[in-house]
């Protein structure tokens, strides 16, 4: 190995310390994008983290289509038409929790302390992380849709419908992630972030119209499903992908996104500056 202990170069060191005036303050966009770049580098160096993005949807699609499809919709191919957009939403919403886990890991390792002492627009590290996550969400979406197409899913909304559906889902997930940035800042460990996220996400993801038509559910459960923001995202994405007009549901999805962000972005920023 030649790369171990090279000595510190005294003149060079003096030269780097003597450099001119400090550069002008970076804009919020520059810093956010730089932190987004960091998230992409992490995916490149630790590609294992994409297992969750890929494995979970495969299992869901195969399990629900072939195990329950016949019983729920009469045939597996018909059920796939119904369930695939729902699984797309469920997959992406489920992986939003990794935002919080990654953030919590950063805190434990001390990277966070450095970032918080930088003279930059405060939310940029978080916004950057969320932008990097958007890339993971896109990968997951492409993966689920491709898998669906291979198994026989045919979106009546065509390419435009699919792209519009994914775009709505991205916006919703970006907003939804702010819940996990908040949890990630408050929780003691990455495991507890995981635990809390699962506790919240599991009921929300399953008590929704992802797998079955809610009209078969008891009234009280239907009420819950109708309030659940994930339900509206499912209706909107499913509608767009099947070419139905679902303007109302898209509007509700955006309203839910705005409400979630209005609550959790300020909570996150407060926890971010108060941390310790």
């Amino acid at each position: 190995m030649t790369t171990t202990e090279a000595p510190v170069a005294a003149e060079k060191l003096d030269a780097v310390l003597a450099t001119g005036p400090r550069p002008p303050r970076a804009s919020a966009v520059t810093t956010s994008l730089a932190f987004g770049w960091r998230a992409l580098l992490r995916i490149r160096h630790v590609p294992e983290q994409l297992f969750d993005v890929t494995l979970f949807p495969v299992i869901s699609v195969l399990l629900f289509t072939y195990l329950f499809g016949g019983a729920i919709a009469g045939s597996t191919s018909e059920y796939l038409q119904f369930v695939l957009p729902g699984i797309l939403v469920q997959t992406v919403v489920m992986i939003t929790m990794y935002t919080g886990i990654a953030l919590n890991t950063d805190i434990e390792k001390g990277v966070f302390d450095r970032i918080r002492t930088l003279p930059i627009w405060r939310p940029s590290a978080l916004v950057g992380a969320l932008l990097g996550d958007a890339v993971r969400y896109t990968l997951a979406s492409v993966f689920v849709v491709t898998l669906g197409l291979v198994l026989g899913y045919r979106p009546d909304g065509g390419l435009v419908g699919v792209v519009a559906g994914v775009a709505v889902l991205m916006a919703f997930s970006f907003a939804f992630s702010w819940i996990w940035t908040w949890v990630g800042l408050l929780a003691r460990s990455a495991q507890s972030v995981m635990g809390i996220s699962m506790m919240v996400l599991f009921p929300l993801a399953f008590l929704s119209p992802v797998f079955v038509d809610p009209s078969t559910m008891p009234d009280w459960l239907q009420t819950f499903v109708e309030i659940n923001p994930i339900s509206h995202a499912v209706y909107a994405v499913r509608g767009l992908m099947s070419g139905d007009s679902v303007g109302d549901e898209i509007m509700w999805t955006f309203i839910a996104s705005a409400i979630i962000m209005a609550i959790f972005a300020p909570l996150t920023m407060r926890a971010y500056s108060r941390r310790r």
């Binding site: 002008p24 970076a26 520059t30 810093t31 960091r38 160096h45 930088l118």
Partner: peptide
């Protein structure tokens, strides 16, 4: 720790302007 030494310093260089 997951990034290289160069990537770490470049990231800081960018966010510092």
């Amino acid at each position: 720790e997951d990034l290289t030494g160069r990537e770490n310093l470049q990231l800081l260089g960018r966010v510092l302007g």
